[in-house]
Amino acid sequence: MSETNLQDWVGRSATATETADGERATRLATLLGHDGDKAAPLFPLGHWLHFSEDDVPMSELGADGHAALGGFMPPVPLPRRMWAGSDLTFHAPILPGQSIERTTTIESITEKTGSTGPLCFVVLRHEITADGTLATTDGHTIVYREATEAPAGSAAKPPREDSPAPEGWDWVKSVRPNEVTLFRYSALTFNSHRIHYDYPYVTEVEGYPGLVTHGPLTATLLLDAFMSTHPEAVVREYRFTAKSPLFVNEQIHLVGRETEPGIHELQAIAPGGKTAIAATVTMKN
């Protein structure tokens, strides 16, 4: 795929330090429809509100709005990127005001060929400490793919029609993220990826039918729905895989069921019944 040996980037590490921000935590709570508490522990995925990859000078952003590749991240010669999934373990809560440090290591880089052409999977391991105590480990997989050619406006389509809530689950919650939801989440995470806010770009350049709902936003909505229906649960592990994209103003069914004691299967289901995100929650004993 490239004359550059991408494997030279495997094993590289970088460390960043911030202060856990209670204000950001309350804004995430507002986004999720809850009352915020600046003194409460961060939502289990609250570290995603910190350490933004796109927090670089404007001159260092790529055409898609993300930080350009070739520095810490390998110069993958494929221009389209998506969050493919995460494997998280929560060791200890993070409290507002604590010093949080994230050490990121590139664990693997795998080049494949799929039905849409070349793909490249980059797996990162984030270790987040709070005041020196390990709080979260986050295995984050990014997938890169080739660009798709889309004549101007040809990909633009209205949101897919709603479908009935699926049966056979212990609980179902339905949500419909709109443009304001996507804007607020991008602002909270300082995510400048244009597929989430630039309609001409996402439809005419990347070939999607509409603004793409952030994968981590959907994963956050899914975990929040689980925690809302299990208020006494303490989550130890959360694993999710993105199966297909979701788009702004589409109805998403968030569903879950217990598969064995302390283990729950979760899904975010797109219009038409297709699984957009498949996830597993394991609770602490």
Rank of each mutant, 00 (worst) to 15 (best):
F183E: 08
G262A: 08
R102Y: 02
N285W: 02
P74S: 05
P44S: 08
A278L: 15
A165G: 12
L266H: 03
Y201D: 08
F51A: 02
S59V: 11
T136H: 06
L134W: 04
Q98I: 02
V281N: 04
P177N: 08
Q267F: 05
Q267M: 11
T26N: 04
S228A: 15
F51E: 03
G132E: 09
Y185F: 15
E204I: 01
E127M: 06
T116A: 13
H140N: 12
K157V: 02
R12E: 03
A39N: 11
P261C: 07
T181R: 09
E258S: 10
L188C: 06
D21I: 04
P177H: 08
T189V: 12
T129S: 14
F72A: 06
S244D: 14
D64E: 07
H34V: 12
G114K: 11
L42N: 02
H126Y: 12
N191M: 05
G210D: 15
T110L: 14
E23P: 00
D54R: 03
P96D: 05
A29D: 15
A130E: 01
Q98R: 04
H253Y: 04
T229S: 13
L31Y: 09
V255S: 05
G114V: 13
Y144N: 05
Q251V: 15
K284A: 12
R80E: 04
T105S: 09
R184L: 12
P164N: 08
T189M: 11
D54N: 14
N249E: 15
S154R: 13
L182T: 10
R257E: 07
E107Q: 14
G272A: 11
A276L: 08
T181M: 12
G46H: 00
G215E: 13
I128K: 00
V143F: 06
G256D: 07
S86Y: 04
L32W: 06
T103N: 10
R125G: 08
P177R: 11
A20Q: 04
D64Y: 01
R102V: 02
E161M: 13
D64M: 07
I269A: 03
L28M: 14
A155S: 15
I269N: 01
T17W: 02
A156P: 02
A150R: 11
A187L: 09
S244W: 12
V76Y: 02
H193P: 06
R184H: 09
P57Q: 10
H214A: 07
E60D: 13
V143K: 03
H140L: 14
T15V: 14
